[in-house]
């Protein structure tokens, strides 16, 4: 096992971490503005993955355009689903007791997960990689799976895009202003409810995009929503709730950590996120990039 093998592990871990980042940043963003932890975020990711699967069966296989179309349509569909959830449900619970907020999103998780089971059933599925991304790329003397490299390109693009949106546009200013003083943003003539709805939809869009990317990276089944939401929780505990930079760091730590530990101790790998979380809780309970509350 030479360096090639370790590089392979690294690429694998990083690409898993990138998908995790895309999903977790959505969770963190929604929390930052709406102050609601959405337990159903993982379910939205799972819906994205299954939608990608269903849609892919209708499109010509192997074509890169089919896959790009999936990446375009599926996140949009999930964002629209988010719109359908935000207006009648989430809007009613902003600013209410944490307990009720958590129970509401938990109820959604149950409904969405079970709806997935009814629609797609318990089979293990995946989306075939388009021909262009199916093979491997020669990198010096090594061959790396093209699709993983593709994710390693998409992930940072999303990170930069998010950063640009949040820090370089008026919409981003509004979103970040709403984090600290939503009522003041309203008093300045901005329809804050709309900012919140848009932020929620963006969070859902990210969950959906993560789902599409995962559907061709690994197998998908009914457990992936729960698995991902728990990974997301580990990410936000490690990185700090509401911090996008923290989400990126946390995701990469988890992705790479799991990939490398899987090798000597395949069973222990599932424990790694918890271990990392416990460690952070002991040394820095509010996360690496977060701020202590009260």
């Amino acid at each position: 096992m030479g360096i090639e093998f370790y590089l392979f592990l690294l690429i694998n871990g990083l690409s898993q971490g990138m998908v995790l980042f895309i999903v977790a940043s959505g969770l963190s963003l929604v929390f930052g503005v709406l102050r609601v932890i959405n337990f159903a975020h993982g379910s939205l990711y799972m819906i994205g993955a299954f939608l990608a699967f269903s849609l892919s069966t209708l499109l010509p296989a192997g074509s890169i355009f089919s896959f790009l179309l999936l990446m375009l349509l599926v996140p949009l569909a999930v964002a629209l689903l988010g719109l359908g959830l935000e207006i009648p449900l989430f809007r009613r619970i902003y600013g209410k007791e944490h307990l009720l907020q958590l129970l509401l999103t938990y109820a959604l998780l149950l409904i969405l997960d079970d709806a997935c089971r009814l629609i797609w059933g318990g089979d293990i599925r995946n989306v075939a990689r388009p021909d262009l991304l199916a093979g491997s790329i020669k990198f010096f003397d090594m061959f790396l799976p093209t699709y993983n490299v593709f994710i390693l390109v998409v992930g940072p693009l999303i990170a930069v895009g998010l950063w640009f949106l949040l820090y370089r546009t008026r919409a981003g200013n509004l979103i970040r202003a709403a984090v600290s003083h939503p009522e003041m943003v309203g008093a300045l003539g901005v329809n804050v409810s709309r900012v919140m709805t848009a932020t929620f939809m963006l969070g859902c869009w990210l969950a959906g995009l993560g789902g599409v990317l995962m559907s061709a990276l690994a197998n998908i089944d009914l457990g992936i929503g729960m698995e991902k939401i728990i990974e997301c929780f580990a990410v936000v505990v490690i990185g700090g709730l509401g911090s996008i930079g923290g989400a990126l760091l946390g995701s990469l730590i988890l992705g790479v950590g799991v990939a490398f530990i899987q090798l000597p101790l395949s069973r222990a790998a599932i424990v790694f996120p918890y271990f990392a979380m416990a460690l952070i809780l002991i040394i820095r309970p509010w996360g690496l990039f977060g701020k202590p509350e009260r």
């Binding site: 008026r170 003041m184 300045l188």
Partner: peptide, 16 residues
């Protein structure tokens, strides 16, 4: 009530 994490320019932009 300024928005503490936004720049001065960002604060003005929110009000624009």
């Amino acid at each position: 009530r300024v928005f503490p994490d936004l720049t001065v320019l960002g604060n003005l932009d929110v009000g624009r």
